[in-house]
C-alpha cells in the first residue's frame, strides 16, 4: 500500500450568522471538498453550525510561544488604550 493516510484539516464552524467562525477541532480527509463534508458529519451532528471552513493543518502559520514576551508584553502597559484610563465628569453620564 503506497499512500493510505489522509492529510489533517483544521475545522472552523460558524454557529449562526452574526458570529465568527470558531476553531472546533480537526479531522482527516483526502481533499478539501471531502473535508467540508466530513466536518458536516463529524462536527455538525447536533445543529452546531451554518457555515464551515476547513484549512489544511500544514497551512496554519502560528506564532512561537517563545516570542510571547516580545509579542504580547509590550501591550500590557498601554493603559491609555482603554476607556477607563480617561475620566469624564459624572454629570455627563455614560460615554
Amino acid at each position: 500500500m503506497s499512500n493510505q493516510n489522509w492529510p489533517l484539516f483544521e475545522v472552523f464552524i460558524r454557529s449562526k450568522n452574526g458570529l465568527s467562525h470558531k476553531h472546533v477541532g480537526s479531522l482527516h480527509a483526502a481533499d478539501a471538498a471531502m473535508a467540508i463534508e466530513n466536518a458536516r458529519d463529524v462536527y455538525c451532528r447536533r445543529n452546531e453550525g451554518v457555515s464551515i471552513w476547513v484549512v489544511p493543518s500544514t497551512q496554519i502559520v502560528a506564532s512561537d510561544p517563545e516570542d510571547a514576551e516580545a509579542l504580547y508584553e509590550p501591550a500590557k502597559d498601554k493603559i491609555y488604550r482603554h476607556p477607563t484610563f480617561y475620566t469624564v465628569p459624572d454629570e455627563v453620564g455614560h460615554m
Binding site: W6, L27, H28, A29, E37, N38, D41, V42, R45
Partner: peptide, 11 residues
C-alpha cells in the same frame, strides 16, 4: 474504512 466515513455512513 476510516472514522470520518464510519460517522458519515451512520448519518
Amino acid at each position: 474504512p476510516i472514522l470520518e466515513q464510519d460517522i458519515a455512513l451512520s448519518n
